[in-house]
Design a binder for these strands. Structure first.
Length: 425
RNA sequence: GGAGAAGUGGCCGAGUGGUCGAAGGCGGUUGACUCGAAAUCAACUGAGCGGCUUGCUGCUCCGUGAGUUCGAAUCUCACCUUCUCCGCCA
């Protein structure tokens, strides 16, 4: 959520980033609503002050046994009047709140301005795509032939965009989860958590998925519960409605969770294989920190995710998302894109964002500065560290051999019980 | 799912209609004492939103939401959460 006072005092700047996001909204309506809001506050508070004063006098009168019925009648009218103003005030505040909750975050000055994916900026590239002496196969061919992925069974049990991992495929999925959690907890200082995989509406409002993106989520019928689309949601909300001490910051959390997404807008895209699933595993990284440190923390968080790919020796590149492609709540986002030989392309495997105080405002997560003074909103960051299913795909494709077998990455061998190679039955 | 009890400030805890944002204690901050620490003493110690002469001042918040009343932490209703017992289960 944007700070209303900031928007009102930076109208041009705010309108400019909205248009860079291609978000069509005229902010000037906020000025009128805010003026009305303040007018109504003055009105109702004046009435309430009079009512409180009157009630005090009634109390005094009754104590002495004096009749106060005339005064009481007068106060009743004042009370009714203030209730009327209150009703109008909450309408105005609700309207303001609705608008603010629907506006995207402002952009950091280093976020490139652009229209689409095409305009994202490549920041750096790591590793070199391997050149194969044969035609590299797609993971869906390799996976089925090796007996580690069963796409038909996924559809049979659920729907399209669901997959059954079998045998060593399932084993490698589990190995990757452990490998990544171990890396982030032991080397990068994150605390491992296991949050609920379902959360209530207010939690999703806190991180920005609701109210606007309900169509992307699975909802539990008859309950105020939704399947989490990412562990970012429960982890970031861990300290909602609280005031932390500055000395307790930064907070680093990591969690493995499955993620559930309806993929409503992506019909027809990546339908083969398991690149885009309704349910996928992910190890997530979340940070809460002070505003002064959040951009350093973003660089470090991105590096933490990169280390996963480096250790697995998977070629990737880092891109800065442009204003037209960046997410609703993010001020700056780096995507990590891993090389997929069968596609001859880099594909997203992680997304690392600084949401600044956008989510903190919605969650009301603040901290008290050591220097004293009023509580301030924390900055929140999140990043995939990294997507498990897509890592499995990347390994299968990048480590494939001419005979269709797959070599196990060095770093993963201990997690695979010493296994060095996956070959078909 | 059924029965009962309870939800007050960072924590404990008093408060059953009238200066109660809330006694008291713990914790914390500052000052005094001390070479320093402890102990002791004193003062301060929640958040949000407004107004104007920017230092004052007003309003709101005692699980959440409605209601009764001139006035609600205190009364009524609904919901949520926690605890105990029963049932069920990993």
């Amino acid at each position: 959520m944007l700070d209303l006072r900031w928007v009102l005092s930076h109208m041009e700047e705010a309108q400019a980033f909205l248009s860079n996001r291609h978000f069509d909204f005229d902010l000037s309506v906020l000025t009128g609503l805010d003026e009305e809001r303040r007018r109504l506050i003055v009105q109702t508070e004046e009435l309430k002050a009079r009512r409180n004063e009157g009630s005090r006098k009634v109390g005094e009168a009754k104590k002495v046994g004096v009749d106060a019925s005339e005064l009481m009648e007068e106060i009743r009218k004042i009370g009714d009047a203030s209730r009327e103003v209150d009703a109008r005030l909450s309408e105005v505040e609700e309207e303001l709140g609705k608008i603010l909750m629907s506006l995207p975050n402002r952009l950091h000055e280093t976020t490139p301005v652009g229209v689409s994916e095409e305009d994202n900026q490549v920041v750096r590239t790591w590793g070199t795509p391997k050149s194969f002496s044969f035609e590299p196969q797609a993971h869906w061919d390799l996976g089925e032939r090796l007996g580690i992925m069963d796409f038909e069974k996924g559809v049979m049990l659920a729907q399209s965009r669901f997959t059954v991992l079998k045998g060593l495929g399932s084993r490698m999925e589990r190995a990757l989860i452990s490998f990544m959690l171990d890396l982030h907890t032991s080397r990068h200082g994150y605390m491992e958590m296991q949050p609920p995989f379902m959360v209530r509406s207010a939690i999703l409002e806190g991180t920005g998925q609701l109210p606007k993106f309900a169509d992307d989520l699975y909802r539990i019928e008859g309950e105020d519960l939704w399947m989490i689309p990412t562990a970012e949601v429960p982890l970031t909300n861990l300290h909602r409605e609280t005031i932390l001490e500055e000395n307790d910051l930064p907070k680093y959390y990591t969690a493995y969770t499955p993620c559930f997404r309806r993929e409503a807008g992506s019909a027809g895209r990546d339908v083969r294989g398991m690149l885009r699933q309704h349910q996928f595993d992910k190890v997530e990284l979340v940070k809460l920190c002070t505003p002064e440190t959040s951009y350093d923390e973003l660089e470090k968080l991105t590096a933490d995710a990169e280390e996963v790919l480096q250790t697995l020796e998977l070629p990737y590149r880092v891109v800065a998302l442009c204003s037209g492609d960046i997410g609703f709540g993010s001020a700056k986002t780096y995507d990590l894109e891993v090389w997929l030989p069968s596609q001859g392309k880099y594909r997203e495997i992680s997304s690392c964002s600084n949401c600044e105080d956008f989510q903190a405002r919605r969650m009301n997560t603040r901290y008290r500065p050591v220097s004293g003074g009023r509580p301030r909103f924390v900055h929140t960051l999140n990043g995939s560290g990294v997507a498990i299913g897509r890592t499995l795909i990347a390994i299968v494709e990048n480590y494939q051999q001419e005979d269709g077998s797959v070599t196990v990455p060095e770093a993963l061998i201990p997690y695979m019980g010493g296994l060095r190679e996956i070959r078909g039955a």
